[in-house]
Amino acid sequence: MIVDQKPVMLTVAEKTVHTDVYTTLFFDFAIDFRPGQFVMAWLPGIDEKPYSLSYHSPTRFGITIEAKGLFSRRAADLSPGDFVGIRGPFGNGFDIISSPHVAVVAGGCGMAPLAPLVERLHPDLFFVHGARTREFILFPDRFAANRHITTDDGSLGHKGMVTDLLAAEIRRRSDQGAPPFDRVYACGPEVMMHAVFTLCDVQGIPCQVSLERYMRCGFGVCGACVCSDQVVCRDGPVFDSKQLKKMPDFNRTALLKSGHAVPLSDYVTWRCQ
């Protein structure tokens, strides 16, 4: 069902601590969902934040929390039986195609919204996941599909960037006369998504990426999350290459809580505090 008005108070049914930084909270609730959609999660007295669904079944869903700020640390400390207010789902979600010639590129906790997508795509997809170190590889054992890992420090998989492996695979397919990718999906740091978008655009491969901005209402009225002329919470958070080309704020500008438009790097610094 859709509960996009007043939050519904749901109890945490189960909690999985993946690593020091990643925790998933599960709720036994039948929520409508397309991969890429998100909910607003409310901790009374603390704050309310958008979280993509990282798990979904007809009777249960999960959100995965990277503990780094006040809200996320409190959320990660919750126990089964504790209440969280949930509104949603919001946003558009990914457009799922059945082709085996698709790639999924995840960066850090950008894995979370992509996980339910990977489970619905063709198992022969090309799947890359990058992170700072091996500790930041989320869901290491979750997928049947083969996943190529990259880390910044080389502690697991290829030392380098996700785009190194994506570019090599695009080249390999072209050299061997294999069918090119019909679609590349990406979620992670915006600079990474921009690199994926640029790489694909040169090759004429359509992309879909999931953007993140500071949000308030979640349903497209307050304007807190505007990125150029797009409202991220309602028009997005998933945007395709055609839209991204008309969004000069992509990988460049984001609004702070005050509405002040700042360079993306300043926004990222604020969000990571």
Partner: peptide, 26 residues
């Protein structure tokens, strides 16, 4: 410069909305 209030700031009630965004401004 003003951040406005913490969330929740805007809630849909079906018959309309209730909001206290709190005048955020650069």
């Amino acid at each position: 410069p003003r951040d406005g209030h913490n969330n929740p700031t805007v809630i849909d009630l079906g018959c309309g909305m209730i909001n206290a965004v709190g005048l955020p401004t650069p």
